[in-house]
């Protein structure tokens, strides 16, 4: 992150002044004319066309080329730049010429990163073995401040002109780069912490365990059959401590609901709907069974169709290895990833 540069918002006037400074470099020649180390020659041509698998005989077959419009071997035009490349151990450009000073100016505004964007070549004639080229480079243009997916900066276009031994212009290459201020990278998102654990006791843990098996349960008294929920150790009707778990239908009706906006806890996405749902009655239960009421979220936090009285089905989703919870899906509302 040390390469990041803080962007300071500048006024339009400041930006215009900066651009005017930059434009002073346009048209300036960069460095001394660069002579090609070798003349255009048949072996290098042959190496290249073999590498790129170009079988055109005008590059390699003297007899055939002689009968062509060229009257002899020519170099592939795209080799233009190759003839003046200085080689791995060639001299490096240094000093404080126009290009270096332009870069220093760009760096002063935080445009420290660079990426090549495109290159165009123009050819005026075919090159032949024996041509010896010299390249001159000028700063062709500098764009206004632009913002791309990479960041904000300026496109800088240089033009390389290639001359033969008679100073005839044989070709040119436009080479465009983008000098930019890197966008501040967002801090790597922290992994979302798991949902709050339910604090459980011996009287409640079994209910959460049953969810892991795909069951939404209520408690029925083992003595008088009274249904109760949330879970507890004793039947309020007959005081029996015996009970059985009964599986409740995975469907119900919204009794009430809220949408939580604040405070935001990292375990959840917001806005966070929370529904109070009356489950449908236990089909094997008694007519006087009370509603079993659950506090649930909706699948994908969907608010579609959520209102008091809305019909929902309940799906159980595994939140993490230790916690599965019931979630509501409003009937008739299309919610992606509804499961089941």
């Amino acid at each position: 992150m040390s390469s990041e540069t803080t962007a300071v918002e500048e006024s339009p006037a400041e930006k215009a002044a900066f651009l005017a400074q930059l434009h002073e470099f346009v048209g300036l020649e960069i460095g001394e004319p660069t002579p090609g180390p070798d003349e255009v020659n048949a072996p290098m041509i042959r190496h290249l066309v073999e590498t790129v698998d170009d079988r055109n005989p005008i590059y390699t077959d003297p007899a055939l080329a002689a009968r062509s419009v060229h009257g002899g071997i020519v170099a592939p035009p795209t080799m233009l730049q190759a003839w003046v490349m200085v080689g791995i151990d060639g001299p490096k450009r240094e000093g404080d010429g126009p290009y270096e000073r332009m870069n220093a100016l760009l760096f002063s505004k935080g445009f420290t990163s660079v990426v090549g964007t495109n290159s165009d070549q123009t050819y005026h004639r075919y090159l032949r073995p024996g041509d010896r080229l010299t390249m001159r480079t000028v700063i062709d243009s500098i764009s206004d401040e632009k913002t791309t997916g990479l960041g904000t900066g300026h496109f800088v276009t240089t033009r390389q002109d290639y001359y033969d031994a008679t100073d005839e212009l044989v070709g040119s290459m436009m080479f465009r780069i983008f000098r930019f201020r890197p966008k501040a990278r967002a801090a790597a998102p922290k992994p979302k912490p798991p949902r709050p654990r339910p604090a459980t006791t011996h009287d409640t843990q079994w209910w959460f365990d049953a969810l892991k098996e795909g069951r939404v349960c209520a408690q029925r008294c083992g003595s008088c059959n009274t249904l109760r929920f949330p879970t507890g150790p004793m039947c309020p009707s007959c005081h029996s401590l015996d009970w059985i778990a009964v599986d409740m239908p995975h469907s119900g009706t919204v009794h009430s609901y809220i949408v939580t906006h604040y405070p935001q806890v990292p375990s959840f996405d917001y806005p966070l709907p929370v529904l109070l749902v009356d489950l449908d009655p236990d089909p094997k239960g008694r007519p006087d069974d009370r509603a079993v009421r659950l506090v649930v979220n909706t699948v994908d936090n969907s608010m579609v169709g959520v209102e008091v009285g809305a019909r929902v089905r309940i799906v159980i989703e595994k939140c993490d290895d230790d916690l599965s919870l019931p979630f509501a899906v409003v009937e008739g509302a299309n919610s992606k990833g509804a499961g089941q």
Binding site: R195, P196, R197, P198, A199, T200, T201, D203, T204, F208, P230, I258, T260, P263, V265, S267, F268, L272, V274, V295, V296, N297, C319, L323, L325
Partner: peptide, 23 residues
């Protein structure tokens, strides 16, 4: 979230993010 009845009563709401008096 200690395993006491007083804390456990919130276990019916807290895993769903209903954590605050306002909620």
């Amino acid at each position: 979230m200690a395993a006491t009845a007083e804390r456990a009563q919130f276990s019916w709401t807290t895993p769903s993010g209903q954590l605050t008096p306002a909620s």
